[in-house]
Design a protein around this nucleic acid. Structure first.
Lengths: 338, 338
DNA sequence: TTGTAAGCGTTATCAT
DNA sequence: ATGATAACGCTTACAA
């Protein structure tokens, strides 16, 4: 049987309060008795029982990280960042993800079963009233990740997609002297893709360039789809100072590979840029100019905000937007053309 | 304040035992009182306190997943599989990873701080005596992931690297009629790479083909390194029925891209195959023939074994080896050459 | 500086 | 079928 606090007390010839003090407020106990107690503790291999401790202290130092899905680098980077920061702050991370990204119901049910969490960092594909309700029912500190909900009663971290896409467009026009830019987005309903498209249109307008509907297309974020699409369209799109702005690196990579298959040179016959700065960006030849999205940072920030609120519940609500960063490599042509 | 069991009892005009029964063994309580209690429960929004529950039941239904690192698809797939199975079995996953993959000390300290876990699934880069000791000190059910430790007193899941590499070699020789196969491994000390090299040598020998030292090289698993290396060596390596067997997909992809840069056709001038079947394999042109490593499955299996032991502590120790699966695509040449 | 004792919210045993 | 009551292992006034 595992030793309890009274076993230690017995062995050290003190009361259990002294043992407790030795552990939690060592300065309050006489050096000699403290030594005795510490000896007893290590001899018995005693560890305080976490349940009993939690029962008194009403906290577990565990944080729930709830994600809509777990496939791919996107989520794993968030997890990595969150885990790192949680560890630094002395918290453990309890992972939980829905099977179906859109199944908020299942997600909520999972939350209701919440066991020990002091707070929850949560990312959802779609935030319904039902979910909002469920979240407040939890009566737990909550941080929303990457959900651009206006007037949410919770803290939140998002990524400033608009700023990232704008930086890319400015680079393309100002530095690469692009004359015509094709936009290849992801699913039409995808918030990120929409934000990026908006920036595309704005910068075009601001620069006095025309917005042509036929230059905007929506695919599904997939390499193969983009490759097939590119094989069809690149022959018409090619041209000096022409550029494809893909809404993620996978599609950009598909375009580059398709260009090769068509005997087109990137960036000379057609430039291609991506978004996200995943590993793929550096594994494409030429390497992709892209926008680094601070996913790990977003995870870490979410945890940090949550812990701060745990420590100071009265803190005013905060909504933090993280800025992506332009990463220029060879696929945009500005290096070769200058 | 959050409602407790006695609040419910008060409101439903019953004793706390009846409330507890209503929740845990509903059949033992009269239908009418049960209704009253259930009404009180939902009116108060009552949820049993997990700490108190854990204190009595001596279990949390939480499982620790400990990893040496969290970068990359490798770990994220393990996490994904583990999370899925844990969820299915009604457990939550508590994540924890060392900062430095080799810092077992930090890892152990983290474990000592274990709070609520019923058991732990752990993967370590290197398993020292010190760590072994720490693991037994935990006195917790443990499953080792991907650590080929002989005579470990714990359950374990590993991947049968040997079988995977052998399948690939047989395919290359029997189906693709390769005449000469170059092996490009990862770090020389990497267990996986070593196992794959061993299989390479064995199959060569079994097939009456010579083992040439100059055909075996060790790089660092990285795309860029492989690309640079390939640019140098491919001109000498090329040849009909010549093939590069890279120990992971990243390096294989580097070889393919380098071949293109050198105006070499894959697989006709030189075939290239990889290992792991990561996304990269399908994002390389031609797509990579490779070996699918069941990472998610490994994570899931680890959790499953752990839960089984939790339920039945007397179970004999088990050591499960998961078989990788050959995935033939276009880069090996067997499709075009037949 | 140390000990006593109350209480945290459950479940489980034993009466009734 | 239901209710008292004793654990579970800990923290923390309060007393000494």
């Amino acid at each position: 049987m595992t030793a309890s606090i009274s076993d230690v007390a017995l062995r050290a010839n003190v009361s259990i309060s002294t043992v407790s003090r030795t552990i939690n407020r060592p300065t309050l106990v006489n050096a000699q008795t403290r030594e005795r107690v510490e000896a007893a503790i290590s001899e018995l291999g005693y560890r305080p029982n976490a349940f009993a401790r939690g029962l008194m202290l009403r906290k577990s130092e565990m944080i729930g990280l709830v994600l809509p899905d777990m496939h791919g680098e996107f989520y794993s980077e968030i997890i990595r960042g969150a885990n790192m920061r949680a560890h630094e702050l002395g918290y453990s991370l309890v992972l939980s993800s829905a099977h179906d990204p859109l199944d908020t119901r299942a997600l909520v049910d999972g939350l209701r079963q919440r066991r020990f969490m002091d707070g929850i960092a949560i990312m959802v594909a779609e935030i319904t009233d039902h979910l909002q309700q469920a979240l407040s029912d939890l009566r737990l500190p909550i941080v929303l990740i990457d959900s651009d909900v206006q007037g949410t009663p919770h803290d939140s971290v998002i990524i400033d997609q608009r700023a990232g896409a704008t930086a890319m467009m400015r680079h393309l026009i100002d530095d690469c002297h692009a004359k015509r830019i094709f936009f290849v987005g992801g699913w039409e309903t995808n918030m990120d893709s929409i934000a990026r498209l908006k920036a595309y249109q704005e910068v075009l307008t601001d620069s006095g360039m025309p917005i042509r509907d036929e230059d905007v297309h929506h695919l599904d974020y997939d390499y193969d789809t983009a490759y097939a699409f590119a094989i069809q369209h690149l022959p018409n799109w090619k041209g000096a100072s022409h550029c494809v702005f893909a809404a993620n690196d996978e599609m950009a990579s598909g375009f580059v590979d398709a260009a090769h298959a068509l005997q087109l040179q990137v960036p000379d016959d057609i430039a291609v840029v991506g978004f996200d700065d995943t590993r793929i960006a550096r594994m494409t030849r030429p390497q992709l100019t892209t926008v680094r999205v601070p996913l790990a940072d977003m995870g870490a920030t979410a945890i940090e905000m949550l812990c701060q609120r745990l420590n100071t519940p009265t803190l005013p609500k905060r909504h933090i937007a993280l800025r992506p960063e332009l990463v220029t490599r060879q696929s945009c042509g500005c290096q070769t053309s200058q």
